[in-house]
Design a protein around this nucleic acid. Sequence first.
DNA 1: TCCCATGGCGAACGACCGTTCAGCCGGGAG
DNA 2: CTCCCGGCTGAACGGTCGTTCGCCATGGGA
Lengths: 183, 183
Amino acid sequence: MDAALTLFAERGYLGTSMRDIASQLGMRAPSLYNHLESKQELLQDIMLRTMEDLFADHRAAIATTNDVAEQLRRAMEAHVRYHARHPREVRIGNAEIWNLEQPAQDRVRKLRRDYARSWQDVINRGVDEGRFQTPSPQLASYAMLEMGIGISLWYHEGGRLSESQLAYYYGDMALRLVSAESG
Amino acid sequence: MDAALTLFAERGYLGTSMRDIASQLGMRAPSLYNHLESKQELLQDIMLRTMEDLFADHRAAIATTNDVAEQLRRAMEAHVRYHARHPREVRIGNAEIWNLEQPAQDRVRKLRRDYARSWQDVINRGVDEGRFQTPSPQLASYAMLEMGIGISLWYHEGGRLSESQLAYYYGDMALRLVSAESG
DNA sequence: TCCCATGGCGAACGACCGTTCAGCCGGGAG
DNA sequence: CTCCCGGCTGAACGGTCGTTCGCCATGGGA
């Protein structure tokens, strides 16, 4: 539900009432229950779908080439594009894990872990092949993931930088972080 | 108040009740009002003090040298050390701005803006002196700030990496991001 | 024309929130 | 010993929350 996305992202899950969501849709709160089970269900749908979409984009990006430096660049570009295009989803995803009930919370945590592991695999392979150089592949991957997340906080369409410029610059920074020559 | 720090960081401002805080202290909620004005006051104290401390550490770090590459490294080290030492404060600081009432919210936003600007000033000077190379000093500064914030989410004392190792590695990454030779 | 399913609605539920207030208790000052 | 006062307390306040329920309007199918 689009209205819930906007409100959860702006005020947080606990800061948004069913009455708020309903009024954004020109309705009253009880009417919402004709279309959904509970408020918690809304949050779970949003967070699970977000992580799965992000991960799917990521896999598609690194499947397009075998060159490890190019994989890293394209992974970062996909990461950045997703965060620029879906800032509301990402903000909720990063802020509301603690408000997710089990077992959904563990599912999201597992997806995150798998996502981070995939990044580390790429970096480790680059190091093994002698293409990347870094004192800690793990720290490098954390840094890259985190760099993208910030984008969802300040980027808005129509700003000074286009999404494609953003993706290119961040791809560039990712390669610099591991001292790689661009593939 | 230390108890409030822990609870706000774990469950969020809205997810923590005065009864929760009191019970952590072996009291009842009304007793808290002998020591503070309101729940909002707690949040404002925490967030303002946090941003001011972080900024003070930052200024001290870049005042210790005139070499711009060394300034960048030391700024990143101070940034990382603060986030590793005060994860609760930082988490609250990043998650709860929207729950801060005015005028405190604007004061915190201004402190953040000033902090970011100081980073950009260092990077811009490095570019002017021909020491740094980056397609966008602004993006580079955002990336560096964001890299540190993630630390507060996973670092804990006694983990595989010591705080000093962490600071050194991140300082290294900051310099790589702008393709600088270590000062 | 009648029927019924769909979906919005007002009212109300119990729970919990931040906060107030009057009273109680223990211990230090006189 | 007496008094007083800082600090903790139960009770209670008005308010908001997520959710339920019975009612009602509507409009398409028979």
